[in-house]
Nucleic acid binder design. Structure first.
Length: 512
RNA sequence: GCGGAAGUAGCUCAAUUGGUAGAGCUCCAGCCUUCCAAGCUGGAGGUUGCGGGUUCGAGACCCGUCUUCCGCUCCA
């Protein structure tokens, strides 16, 4: 990481805290690793980003609807999706080689070695004896008996340990079997740790099996399990999309880089259901469309790039990321995946329910294919903040300004009486009250006006409205532009239209 | 998890060999001010991350612990 980028990243983090955008979670208790809270300004900025996405997807598309599925889901959902089996591995590190292994794989390799030894004995014997009875030989040869007993014993112990979730027993087994690290050749092992992707919790007092619930690791499954409900109740025809924003939870092994990788985070996902065979066309469509959506934020088109996945997940037949140039380099911001019919097929199989679509044009039943767009809201937040935060040199003075896209700014304008006397605060308050129902405003009468301008610059407020003595006479005010610091005089009755036009979302959405 | 660095006021940092915890900014109450920070007066704010130990005496030395940052490792 280049020095200036590192400094930028640090200044983004401290700026976020200093001005109430993001705080470390539970900070008075020393914080909680990789968990953050959004403060009074961060919550608004985040909400505005979520609104921009939701309106772009749902409000601007007649064939996309939005839902809000719960975080808790039936445990079988995660069996069907593959999350339970794929991310439930006991891991162990060798302290000398610093290599990490799956403990179960080490044990399986050991068992495979025993099998190979048995096979060797059998082959040797086959050459010696003729005729050769393999079954008889296996059941009588003492060496093979020893191997088989060891094998059986190992498997039993491993099975018992895994079933009772006893990771210490797994480690003991590895020690007892004298398994060495293939790289360092030593037996200097750490504890066995289970890095479950999913957080689990329990619900009620139903049967033992059903009581364990998972906090969802992705919002997508809430869409898949509701797809037929939505399609039927909304009388939707292919192609159509279901959008959703919401929290997801992943127990990352190492979670770092501020809000880039958090254990609790918010996703904005849209699953687009299409006729099989048309998925690549729609994949390309959404690739283009999603990139444009990001570029429309106005942070700079050069900050984005596509990264096509070469190695595809088993369920995808095409996948790419939209990467953003964060202070720590280009990293994934949004993923676009052609997920085929994998998820719906899995849920059909596990639930035993038909999840097919009836195409009235062709008179056919089929399972739709899915194109997914999935963006991390927190990553988007970080992208916007780090690209907006600027430090300007003005003569001997430095100005810290957050050049947020105006429609995202927590406050659209600040109302500032030039002096805290002569009736200027009263006039300002009247103005504030008349505009407040329409626009998010900030009122400040403390300190010199220059200082107040700078405070607004630091939190990204695009306009400052200053009330002076002339305002009392003719109801005009000055409006000051954040990015240029220029100001012009305007009648107070023109403010609402001006601010709506320049800080509203409508103009941006028109291009979607 | 391993290795390295660092934790002192809201923020940035001082504190000589171990000898009374301080400054600037911020914040609060006023004063002064007719458009771009750092004018004046007064005030608040700390169990030096936490717990032990050595010492007459610890912010400093020793041990433990927690957190953060950097690198490695992992990441559907």
């Amino acid at each position: 990481m280049a020095q200036h980028s590192e400094d930028l990243f640090k200044s983004v983090i401290s700026h976020a805290k200093e001005y109430g955008f993001i705080f470390p979670s539970s900070e008075i208790y020393d914080g909680l690793s990789a968990v953050y809270d959004y403060g009074q300004l961060g919550a608004v900025l985040k909400k505005n980003l979520r609104d921009y996405w939701w309106k772009s997807m749902v409000q601007m598309h007649q064939n996309i609807v939005g839902i809000d599925a719960s975080i808790f889901m039936h445990p079988t959902v995660w069996k069907a999706s593959g999350h339970v089996d794929a991310f439930n591995d006991p891991l162990i590190d060798n302290k000398d080689s610093k290599k990490r292994y799956r403990a179960d794989v080490l044990i399986e390799d050991y068992v495979a070695k025993l099998d190979a030894k048995i096979q060797q004995e059998v082959e040797k014997a086959a050459k010696r004896f003729n005729p050769f009875d393999e079954t008889l030989f296996k059941s009588t040869n003492p060496r093979i008996q020893e191997y088989l007993a060891k094998r059986l014993n190992t498997m039993e112990r491993f099975k018992t340990a895994m079933e009772s979730n006893d990771l210490n027993a797994v480690r003991d087994l590895i020690i007892d079997l004298e398994i060495v690290c293939p790289v360092s050749g030593t037996r200097n092992w750490t504890e066995v740790r289970q890095f479950n992707l999913m957080f689990s919790t329990s619900m009620g007092s139903v049967s033992e099996e059903a009581s364990t619930l998972y906090l969802r690791p992705e919002t997508a499954q809430g869409i898949f399990v509701n797809y037929l409900n939505v399609q039927k109740s909304g009388r939707l025809k292919l192609p159509f999309g279901i959008a959703q924003t919401g929290k997801a939870f992943r127990n990352e092994i190492v979670a770092r880089q501020f809000i880039f990788r958090m254990r609790e985070f918010e996703q904005m996902e849209m699953q687009f259901f299409v006729k099989p065979g048309s998925e690549m066309e729609w994949y390309e469509h959404w690739k283009t469309k999603r990139l444009q959506w990001h570029i429309r934020l106005g942070l700079g088109a050069n900050l984005y790039r596509f990264h096509d996945h070469v190695k595809l997940a088993h369920y995808a037949n095409a996948a790419c990321d939209i990467e953003f140039n964060f202070p720590f380099g280009f990293k994934e911001l949004e993923g676009i995946h052609s997920r085929t019919d994998f998820d719906l097929k899995q849920h059909e199989q596990y639930s035993g329910k038909k999840l097919q679509y009836f195409d009235s044009e062709t008179n056919q039943h089929y399972t739709p294919y899915v194109v997914e767009t999935s963006v991390g809201l927190d990553r988007l937040f970080l992208a916007v903040m780090s690209a907006s935060l600027k430090e300007e040199q003005i003569e001997q003075d430095t100005r810290t300004v957050m050049q947020l896209p105006p429609f995202l700014a927590p406050y659209k304008a600040a109302i500032l009486p030039l002096l805290k006397k002569d009736g200027l605060p009263e006039f300002s308050m009247t103005l504030l009250k008349s505009l407040q129902p329409y626009i998010e405003l900030f009122y400040d009468e403390k300190d010199t006006v220059g200082k107040r301008y700078r405070r607004q610059d630091a939190i990204g407020t695009p306009y400052c409205i200053t009330v002076d003595h002339q305002s009392l006479e003719d109801s005009t005010v000055t409006i000051r532009y954040r990015d240029t610091m220029h100001q012009e005089r305007m009648h107070s009755t023109a403010l609402l239209a001006f601010l709506t036009q320049n800080t509203g979302m409508a103009t941006v959405l028109q291009g979607v």
